[in-house]
C-alpha cells in the first residue's frame, strides 16, 4: 500500500509539471502583455519598462520559467495587482467557499446517482428505468448557468423560498472561523441561526451543480448495478433467501461502488469547471468568481494563482481518489 501511494504521487509529478508549463506558456508567451493590460495602452514606455523590470518580465524566458516554478513550489503566487494582498492569502480565503459548494454538489450528485441509478437498474426496461435514462440525457444537455438561473427564477423570484445569491445574509457569518466552511464553523460555534442561513444559501447553487453532474452518476451507477445484478454472487444471495433490499444495496450496489469512485475522480475536473460557472451565476464568493472578477481587472498574478490552484486541486483529488480506490478494492495495483 505504501509503495502504491508513493508511486501514485511520483507519477503525478510530471503531469503537474506539464500543466504548470502549459499555464506558463498561456499566461506569459501568448499575446496580451500583462504590463500593458495593467497600465493601459497609453502608458509611457519608461513606466512600462520599470513595471516589466519589477515583475521580472525583462528576464530571459527560461529564467522567468525557473522563477515561476520556484515560487509555486514555495507557495508564493505574488501580490495581487488589484488589492495589494498576497494572492495565496486571497486564495486561501476564497477556497473554503469553493470547497463547501463542491462537497455539497458532489454529495447531491452521488445521492441522486445511487438512488436513481440503482432503482433504474433494478427496474431494467420499465418506466422507472426509462425515466432515469431520459433524466440523464436531458439534464446533461443543460448549461449549468442556465439551469442555475432557472432555479433562481422559480425558487427565488416566483416562490420566494430561497435566496438567489451569495453565501450568507448580512451579519450571518460564523463568529469564529475555524475551517472556513460555514456549515462546520457554525456548528462548532453552536450558532444555529447561522447554520440555517448558510444551508439556505447553499441549496440552490449545490443543487444546480449537483443535478447537472448527477446525470453521469445515474448512468454509471445504473450500468454497473445491472452488471452486478446479473452476477453469480447476486444469484447466490437470492438462492440463500436474502431479502430483495439487501440483495440490491448490500450485494449489487456495494460491488458496483469501486468503478463509481473512479468515475467520481474523473468527473472532478468537470465538476470544477461547472463550479466556476455556478459560482458566477450565484455570486458565490469562491475561487471561480475570484478568477472571473480578476480577469476583468486584468489582475495578472491573481489569474495565474487561481489557475495554478485549480490545477493542484485536480491533481490532489485524483491522487486521493486513486488511493481510496486501492484501499477499497485490493485488486487495484500498478
Amino acid at each position: 500500500m505504501k509503495t502504491y501511494i508513493l508511486t501514485r504521487i511520483l507519477l503525478a509529478i510530471p503531469m503537474i509539471l506539464i500543466i504548470l508549463t502549459i499555464i506558463f506558456f498561456v499566461l506569459r508567451i501568448l499575446p496580451g502583455n500583462p504590463v500593458m493590460a495593467l497600465l493601459g495602452p497609453k502608458a509611457p514606455p519608461e513606466v512600462v519598462k520599470a513595471m516589466e523590470h519589477q515583475m521580472g518580465l525583462d528576464k530571459p524566458i527560461i529564467v522567468q520559467y525557473g522563477d515561476y516554478l520556484g515560487s509555486i513550489l514555495k507557495g508564493d503566487f505574488g501580490v495581487s495587482a488589484y488589492t495589494g494582498v498576497t494572492v495565496i492569502q486571497e486564495l486561501m480565503q476564497k477556497f473554503p467557499a469553493t470547497l463547501e459548494l463542491t462537497i455539497f454538489a458532489m454529495t447531491i450528485a452521488v445521492f441522486i446517482g445511487i438512488f436513481f441509478g440503482t432503482y433504474g437498474a433494478y427496474h431494467f426496461g420499465r418506466t422507472l428505468d426509462i425515466a432515469a435514462r431520459v433524466y440523464s440525457i436531458f439534464v446533461y444537455s443543460f448549461p449549468v448557468f442556465w439551469f442555475g438561473i432557472m432555479l433562481q427564477l422559480i425558487f427565488g423570484v416566483w416562490l420566494h423560498w430561497l435566496p438567489v445569491s451569495g453565501r450568507s445574509s448580512p451579519f450571518m457569518i460564523p463568529n469564529h472561523i475555524y475551517t472556513g466552511l460555514y456549515v462546520i464553523d457554525s456548528i462548532l460555534n453552536l450558532e444555529w441561526p447561522v447554520l440555517v442561513d448558510t444551508l439556505y444559501h447553499l441549496i440552490l447553487p449545490s443543487v444546480t451543480l449537483g443535478v447537472v453532474i448527477s446525470s453521469i452518476f445515474v448512468r454509471m451507477v445504473r450500468s454497473n448495478v445491472i452488471l452486478s445484478l446479473s452476477s453469480q454472487y447476486v444469484v447466490a444471495a437470492r438462492a440463500r433467501g436474502a431479502k430483495e433490499k439487501k440483495v440490491i444495496f448490500k450485494h449489487a450496489l456495494k460491488n458496483a461502488m469501486a468503478p463509481i469512485l473512479t468515475i467520481m475522480g474523473l468527473e472532478f475536473a468537470l465538476l470544477l469547471g461547472g463550479a466556476v460557472l455556478t459560482e458566477v451565476t450565484f455570486s458565490w464568493p469562491g475561487i471561480g468568481s475570484y478568477l472571473v472578477t480578476r480577469i476583468t481587472y486584468r489582475d495578472f498574478p491573481a489569474i495565474q494563482g487561481a489557475i495554478v490552484f485549480f490545477a493542484m486541486f485536480v491533481a490532489i483529488v485524483s491522487i486521493l481518489v486513486d488511493i481510496a480506490n486501492a484501499w477499497l478494492d485490493p485488486r487495484v495495483r500498478y
Partner: peptide, 24 residues
C-alpha cells in the same frame, strides 16, 4: 501522450477561460 493526457485531465473550461482571457 503524457502531455495530451495532462491537458485532458485539466478542467477544460478553466483552460479555455485562461486562454480567452489572455487573447482577448
Amino acid at each position: 501522450t503524457m502531455i495530451m493526457d495532462s491537458v485532458y485531465t485539466f478542467p477544460g473550461l478553466i483552460l479555455a477561460i485562461a486562454i480567452a482571457a489572455m487573447l482577448g
